[in-house]
């Protein structure tokens, strides 16, 4: 009985469910920032678990898979941060019913000083 293959495929299945939920969040959430929250967190853990499961199934690939996991875990938050910053700079508004926007206050005071 190849128990490690079953373990790996179960981990992969859990990861793919998280990936699906992340994409569902990107589809359903009302504005860009909330979408990005769902997208970044769920896809990071989903990718880590999916790749790790495959690495357990095919244990001779584990080195390459760990390199891809490290790359994804390091770059995914950076790209989402760059996008969020650019979108706020562009003036994309928060959804209706948002509580506060401190960054907007800062940007407007800076304009007044100029």
């Amino acid at each position: 009985m190849e128990w490690y293959r079953i373990l790996g495929s179960i981990i992969t299945l859990i990861g793919s469910i998280f990936l699906f939920l992340g994409a569902l969040g990107v589809f359903r959430m009302p504005d860009l920032y909330n979408r990005m929250q769902a997208g970044t967190k769920a896809t990071t853990l989903g990718t880590i678990l999916t790749l790790l499961g495959i690495g357990i199934c095919h244990y001779e690939w584990i080195g390459q898979i760990l390199v891809i996991i490290m790359f994804i875990a390091l770059t995914n938050p950076i790209s989402s941060h760059a996008l969020a910053r650019a979108a706020h700079f562009k003036g994309i508004p928060l959804t209706k019913g948002s509580v506060a926007d401190k960054l907007k206050e800062k940007e407007s005071t800076e304009v007044e000083v100029d």
Binding site: L13, S16, L19, A23
Partner: peptide
Amino acid sequence: LPEILLQISTYFVSAGIILA
């Protein structure tokens, strides 16, 4: 069993790609 589970994960991942 591992093949079946991996196939189900492929369906979930593909559904996520369609939503995106």
